[in-house]
Each structure stands twice: as structure tokens, then as C-alpha cells.
Nucleic acid binder design. Structure first.
Lengths: 224, 224
DNA sequence: GACGAATTAGACAAGGATGTCTAAAAAATT
DNA sequence: AATTTTTTAGACATCCTTGTCTAATTCGTC
């Protein structure tokens, strides 16, 4: 009698292997086009095993969505925890952060899978993505917004609406990745980095303290 | 013998009706999930007629993609032609323009269909969307970039890279529409307008002439 | 080594979809 | 009005997929 009542350890390994394969197949072929035989083959497992673990195609799909959502959220918060709270060089550090966002979250395996699943099936299975909608963008954006608000409070940024700023930051970071993303292409590190730099530069032109700096300089000049 | 050798006028009407229905079905169900019987029913046509016009499911899909791409591009350029080239109140007029972009292009029927088709099948049928990729975002963005460049030249904006500015403008305009879009929801005019206003405000904070105004003020102060 | 649970391979029925075919009806042209 | 083309309804063969079932086999534990 092993300490954990869970059947086997190979059991859960196969379970995860099936989930991974199913995610890839659903993502490539869509729900209707996904073939259980293909999932089984790609997971290195008999078809019957797929049915043993997740009784149904629908249930399998739901399991995949839950699994991917969870892992994707974990990844997002892991990247979020590297936000530059005490920046020496705000532009440089925000750029590195945006780059991590690109690589680890948006262009990462889980991120791409989840996004494609939502695009393809979100309209048809809204209940499945309810959890994502609640805990995904909502939580991530407001966490990011909190970080921006803190930067603004510390005098590094000039932000009226931190939530809006956070959403716009994400959108700007995505600008040059969207088209390649659509066709399954993966920009190299240099391109990702350049894209992040462009996004951050524009973001800081909008929300940096340059205007107040200019005013400060103006006041100095006037008082001189 | 009528001047045009084309068979009938009801013929082309049915053709278009089939294309419309097929677009809706492909979009809702995906390529694999789309049912030709359903397309025929939705088009008010016998299944055989569908096969008569477009011999194949694949060919039908290709025809739909071409049709939608064309109409979508036409719509985009129609909206683009309302760009404020000689603005009195730049922020207000850009906001109205962004609003038209939202309603007529991004959230419009053709725009949504095309975007969904590309998301769902772009990776699997890259040849089909090659034309879109070449003539769609490329042309639209560079046309928009040209308008921004002209505004910059006329002294209304401070832009280094008009192409980048155009892409970022589109991204900012999309910020608040993305999530509803994913779930087939249509924000009302008020929300669309508010979203456009937020996007334009941020865009102008980044690319407006405020900094140079400040510098001008500074120079005046210094020369005084 | 023996036992029980999980896995496997393959066969299988049922259902659904594609694409073809035919004969009849409808529409348009001359 | 006659003729030609298009459309229609339905039947049809074929293929693919889902989900179940069975018997053999492997794996891990006692």
C-alpha cells in the first residue's frame, strides 16, 4: 500500500501524455477535425486507453481546456513575478519584461494552444472557457495593472487608468507577433526583442514622465 | 445572345447565396465540422447545386476565402478613405475614424468571418491565405501609414516610423474589442465609441506633438 | 511466482458525411 | 411554344469516425 492512494505513477504519466497529445491535435485540427485514433497514436497509447481515462471526446476536450488553462495561468503569473518593481533603467527593464512575456507566455506552447482553442471553439463552447475568462485575462491584467500603478505611484510613470494601461501594454507587445502567430511561425529572439523594444518605447512615450520632465525643465529655465 | 456570355442572372445570385451561407457555416463550425447539407439548407438550395457551382468542399472553402478576402479589403479601403487628412480637432476626428474602423471593418460581418477563418485554418491552409497576407494587412497598414505620415509632415503628429505607428494604432483600437470578439459578442455603439476614444487618447499621448510643444515653450522661455 | 489492475490490439456496429447518379421539374432563351 | 440549361429531390455507394466489446498481455505489488 503506497502512501498515495492513486493507482500508479505510470497511470498519471499516461494521463498527461494523452492530454498533451490531445491538446496538440485539437489545436491543429479543431474539435470536429480531431481524430481520437490520432490522439492515441501521438500519445503512444491505445485508443481504448484514451476512452478509459476520459470517457468521451467532449470530456477529453474539456479536460484539455482545463489543463491548458491552468498551466497557462501559472506561466503568466510566473512571468508577471519578474516585473521590474524598482527599475534603475525603466525602458530597458520593461523591454526585458516584455520579451519574457513574449517568449514565456504569448508565444509559448501553452499560450498558443489556449489562444487557438479559444479562437476556434470559444463561441461554440462558452461554458468551457468561462473559467478562463474569469481567471485568465481578468486576473493577469489586473495584476499587471497593479504593478503599473505602483510604478506610477513611485513616480516612474504617469498613468490615469492602470487597467487600461495594462491592456494597452499587452496589445502593444503583441503588435508584431500577431501575423507570424497566425501562421504558426516563431520569430527568433532578435525579432522578439526588437518587437518588445518598439512596444515599450511607444508605451513610455504615452505613459512615461517626459511631459512632466519637460515641465520641470521649463520651470527650472524659468526660475533661472 | 445577351451581351454577357454568363449563363443567368439567377445563377450568380445563387452562387453568392451559397458563398454567404458557406462562409457562415465554415466560420461557425470550422472546415472539418462544416456540413455541406447545412450549407445547402442555409443557402436555400439543393445540395447538388452546391456541387455544381463549386465541385468540392475544398474548392468551396477556397472560393469562400477569396470572396470574403476581397469584400473585406474593399471595406477596409472604404473606411480608410474617410481618414481625417485635414483635421481641425485631431483627437475628435481620429476617434470618429477609429469608431468607423471598429464598426465597418473589425467588428463587421466580413471582418469577423475572415479573421475567424484565418485563425482556425490559417496554419493548415497557408496557401489559401497567402493572398490575404500579401494584400490584406500589408496594403491596409501601409495605406494607413501613409495617412499618418502625411499628418506628421503637416505638423499634426510626431512620428518616426509611420508603419509602426499604423500597426500600433490598429492594435490600440482593438484593445477593448478583443475579448467580446472572441465570444461573438457585439459591443454597442457607446462602448465602441468609448473604446475608440481611449485608443486615440493613448495614441496621441505617444505620437502627438506635446513634447515638441513643450520644447517650443521651453525655447521661448529660454530666449526670453 | 501469483494476483489484480491497467493496457493493448483488433473486431465490430451504428451513425454521419462526402460525392455521384438519375429522372423529374423549373427557368430562361430563342 | 419549343428547346436548352439549371435546379431539384432522393437514392446510393463509399469512406471515416466514434464508442463498445473481448481476449490477450503487460505491469506493479504482495
Amino acid at each position: 500500500m503506497s502512501p498515495d492512494r492513486f493507482p500508479l505513477r505510470g497511470h498519471t504519466a499516461k494521463r498527461q501524455s494523452i492530454l498533451d497529445a490531445a491538446a496538440a491535435v485539437f489545436c491543429r485540427e479543431g474539435f470536429a477535425g480531431a481524430n481520437i485514433d490520432l490522439v492515441a497514436a501521438e500519445a503512444g497509447v491505445a485508443r481504448q486507453t484514451v476512452y478509459n481515462h476520459h470517457g468521451d471526446k467532449e470530456k477529453l476536450f474539456a479536460a484539455v481546456v482545463n489543463d491548458i488553462t491552468e498551466r497557462c495561468n501559472a506561466r503568466a503569473f510566473s512571468v508577471l513575478s519578474t516585473f521590474p518593481d524598482n527599475p534603475k533603467d525603466l525602458e530597458a527593464e520593461l523591454t526585458v519584461f516584455a520579451m519574457r512575456l513574449n517568449k514565456g507566455f504569448i508565444m509559448g506552447r501553452e499560450g498558443r494552444f489556449l489562444a487557438k482553442l479559444i479562437h476556434a471553439e470559444g463561441e461554440r463552447h462558452p461554458e468551457l472557457f468561462e473559467a478562463w475568462r474569469r481567471d485568465g485575462p481578468g486576473r493577469v491584467w489586473s495584476a499587471l495593472a497593479a504593478r503599473f500603478a505602483r510604478l506610477a505611484f513611485a513616480g516612474h510613470l504617469d498613468i490615469d487608468d492602470p487597467d487600461l494601461a495594462a491592456r494597452q501594454f499587452m496589445a502593444l507587445v503583441n503588435v508584431d507577433l500577431h501575423i507570424p502567430w497566425l501562421f504558426g511561425e516563431t520569430p527568433n529572439d532578435e525579432e522578439l526583442s526588437a518587437s518588445a523594444a518598439r512596444a515599450v518605447r511607444t508605451f513610455l512615450r504615452a505613459y512615461g514622465r517626459k511631459r512632466e520632465d519637460a515641465n520641470a525643465t521649463l520651470e527650472e529655465a524659468q526660475s533661472a
